[in-house]
Simulated assay, not measured.
Amino acid sequence: MRRLILFRHAEAVHSSRYRDHERPLTDAGRKDAARAGARLADSALSIDLVLVSDSQRTRETWDLAGAALKEAPEARLEKKLYEAERRDLMNLAREQPDSVKTLILVGHNPSIAEFGVHFAGRGEREALKRLGKGFPTSAIAVFELDGVEWRKLRWGDGDLVHFWA
């Protein structure tokens, strides 16, 4: 069973002092990122690979969230995630080797939200309903992929089993 996890970065400062790419997390964002990491840790999901946008806010989000995990998965900065569209996220997922069973994409809206809505072919009813209302900062969507290889992923293949927001 493969899993694809979408993780939107935590709340970042809105200030003209920073270029968009360099915006750090707010104090609330740092707390939310740590809570999201605790949620991942409590889920006891085994994570093989994390692809993180190279923006400051996504790097900080993963650093704080990942610190809550007992075992640190391999994490890589992925420049393509910064200005990605939903099809770019699909292409990144399709590029993963069969050895990766659980993949996390740490990125930005609107691509994370759009991907989630189009990828969720079925799932837990309340989770689908919440996902349809938006993908707030620090939210995490967990999809199971029953018998689907990464390279053969299509829209609607995901079974949304959790949406933590």
Results as ranks from 00 to 15, higher is better:
D159G: 04
G134S: 05
V50M: 06
G134A: 04
L4R: 00
R125Q: 13
S138Q: 08
S43I: 03
A72Y: 00
E78Y: 03
R86C: 02
A120Q: 00
L69C: 00
R151P: 01
K80V: 11
V13C: 02
R19A: 14
G147S: 03
A41T: 10
R154T: 06
L103A: 09
A36R: 03
I47T: 12
H108N: 01
K79N: 03
M90R: 07
K101C: 08
E124N: 13
E11Q: 15
A34T: 13
D63T: 13
H21E: 04
L131K: 00
R19L: 14
E71C: 03
D88S: 06
L45Y: 12
G158D: 11
K80Y: 04
I5A: 01
W164T: 07
I112G: 02
Y18K: 07
P24Y: 10
S99W: 05
K80N: 11
D42H: 11
L69V: 08
A33E: 01
L4Q: 04
P97N: 09
T26I: 00
I5R: 01
A93M: 07
L69I: 08
R17A: 15
L51Y: 04
S111R: 00
R30W: 07
R122N: 12
D159V: 13
D27S: 14
R23G: 05
S53H: 09
F7P: 05
W155D: 07
L69Y: 10
L92R: 09
N109W: 06
F163T: 06
D20N: 14
L92N: 06
N91Q: 15
R122V: 02
R23I: 10
A28L: 14
A38F: 05
R151E: 14
R3W: 07
L45Q: 05
A10P: 02
S55P: 10
G121E: 00
L40S: 03
F7Q: 08
G132L: 06
D157Y: 09
V106N: 06
K129L: 10
V106W: 01
P110F: 06
G147N: 04
I104G: 10
T61S: 11
L77Y: 02
L51E: 09
E124M: 02
A41Q: 14
T58S: 13
